[in-house]
Design a binder for these strands. Structure first.
Length: 443
RNA sequence: GGAGGGAUGGCUGAGUGGUCGAAAGCGCACGACUCGAAAUCGUGUAGACCCCUACGGGUCUCGAGGGUUCGAAUCCCUCUCCCUCCGCCA
């Protein structure tokens, strides 16, 4: 099955725009070289196809032939067959590279996206909420001794990192008692928030195939970041690996829900809320964010996944919608946050527009990423082969978007640290109390 | 884990080497009939890629990959998935 992951016509029409996008996103892609390969493929394909056409035509006539004519024709056909096979092999070789290169090609970001090489060039858009009073520019200094979430968790016996590490190695943890209950409460609160707005809740598979990881754009690229299941057992001779992978976000499963389907326009946009544990190897992050629950191998997340019409205006409207949903959750919890325009170098090859939400974390004395909102145009839809039929009966690729609604335990960092009291207890935010049997305090 | 059966177009389902990208039925679209509708009749109805201004033409696809053959839905090998029965089990 031939994979076409990009709008080839568009690429052929304006290669410079793609080359610029690649450069801005920091990708080592030579668009000219790809186009050369593309042409090579096309030329050879033409040859191979006309060869096959001839073969097919003659083959059709063979049953009507007799005697010597038949003998010589068969002999000729045997020779033709062999040379066709050689050409086929060469074509496959070219197509393999052609497909692999396509997988690396970027989408073109919106003009409004800041151009920059990494996260240091992301741009703050706006802030919401007042920073907690006990926090000053020098970090913790207040009328009482402030604790970070690790100390709070330890003292309250609601987070147990040492035992997590004992069982499963670095970046593992237990939530315990009210800590575990608080996590469930905040997750359930976020789910209900979406449910009230008509969103459809999903508990998806937590394992997904290579096609899903590739289709959502995580592969190639994030292999090192992904846990594979059954990797040692390669079977078959297909090009696709048939391992399963633990998902790093339910976006992988939920966006793949309609893989290879043609949807009806009136069914769009879909508003899907995926709940799942998320697994990340965090390879290559040794020494980074080693303390506490910020960067860990396993967490839980409610993710918003939207499929919509191939219309940028509508896409951006939905982008606002899903970002607002997340903001509303943070506002209900009264957690200060800011919105960040993610720059080209930090956004990933498939993204067209991306904003992060960062929530204030006293122990870091800074905002820390808690949400990531993305508009991917038809990037995922092409890879996943998800189309819709518009009013005129034309089939088009959908556009996809996604945003975190809430991710835990990272959100527990601001939650515990900001709501801590002088007596060492933690006040439970009003909106979460119904989910904890009316409980008001952890202490 | 043991034993069998299966995978064909939107669906049901025929097809065991060429006349098959594929019967028939259903569904759907258009047309005729009708005041209108139902029924009936007629016509059409997979996708991807390539060539072409267009008309049109070509290649590939019958779960996936490979093989045999001039020629494969059909024969051979490997894999995947689904179903039924038995066992086990949250």
């Amino acid at each position: 099955m031939l994979l076409i992951m990009i709008d080839l016509e568009d690429l052929r029409a304006r290669p410079d725009a793609y080359q610029k996008a690649a450069k801005d996103k920091g990708l080592k892609i030579d668009v000219k070289k790809f186009l050369k390969l593309d042409k090579e493929r096309k030329d050879l394909l033409g040859k191979v196809e006309s060869g096959r056409a001839e073969k097919n035509a003659v083959s059709k006539k063979i049953p009507t032939m007799k005697g010597k004519e038949k003998e010589t024709t068969l002999e000729e056909m045997r020779t033709l067959s062999i040379s066709l096979k050689e050409q086929d092999a060469k074509l496959s070789e070219i197509e393999e590279e052609w497909e692999m290169t396509q997988l690396e090609l970027p989408t073109i970001p919106l003009d409004s996206v800041p151009i920059g090489k990494d996260e240091t060039e992301n741009r703050e858009v706006r802030k919401w909420g007042d920073l907690p009073k006990f926090n000053t520019s020098s970090g913790f200094s207040a009328s009482f001794k402030i604790k970070d979430h690790v100390k709070l968790g330890e003292d309250l016996d609601i987070i147990d990192i040492p035992r997590g590490v004992k069982l499963a190695g670095a970046r593992s943890y237990f939530l315990k008692g009210d800590g575990a209950r608080l996590e469930m409460a905040v997750l359930q609160f976020a789910l209900d928030h979406l449910y009230k707005k008509g969103w459809t809740q999903f508990t998806p598979p937590y394992m997904a195939s290579w096609e899903c990881l590739m289709g959502t754009g995580f592969f190639p690229g994030a292999e090192e970041q992904t846990y594979a299941v059954g990797a040692e057992e390669k079977r078959g001779s297909g090009v696709e690996a048939d391992d399963l992978y633990l998902i790093g976000t339910s976006e992988v499963s939920v966006a793949s829900y309609h893989k290879d389907e043609v949807l009806k326009e009136e069914d769009l946009p879909t508003r899907y809320a995926g709940y799942s544990p998320c697994f990340r190897r965090e390879a290559g992050t040794y020494g980074k964010d080693t303390k506490g629950l910020y960067r860990i191998h396993q967490f839980q997340k409610i993710e918003q996944v939207v499929l919509c019409k191939a219309d940028q205006e509508e896409g951006l409207k939905l982008f606002e919608e899903i970002r607002t949903n997340a903001e509303e959750v943070l506002q209900s919890l009264n957690l200060p946050y800011r919105i960040i325009d993610v720059c080209t170098g930090d956004m990933g090859k498939g993204k067209v527009f991306m904003q992060d939400i960062e929530t204030w974390m006293p122990s870091r004395n800074s905002y820390g990423e808690t949400h990531s909102c993305s508009y991917l145009g038809d990037f995922q839809a092409r890879r996943l082969n998800i189309k819709y039929e518009d009013k005129d009966g034309n089939k088009q690729f959908v556009h996809t978007l996604n945003n975190t609604c809430i991710a835990s335990p990272r959100i527990l960092i601001p939650l515990l640290e900001i709501y801590q009291q002088e007596d060492g207890t933690v006040t439970i935010p009003d909106v979460l109390r119904p989910y904890m049997g009316g409980q008001a305090v952890i202490g």
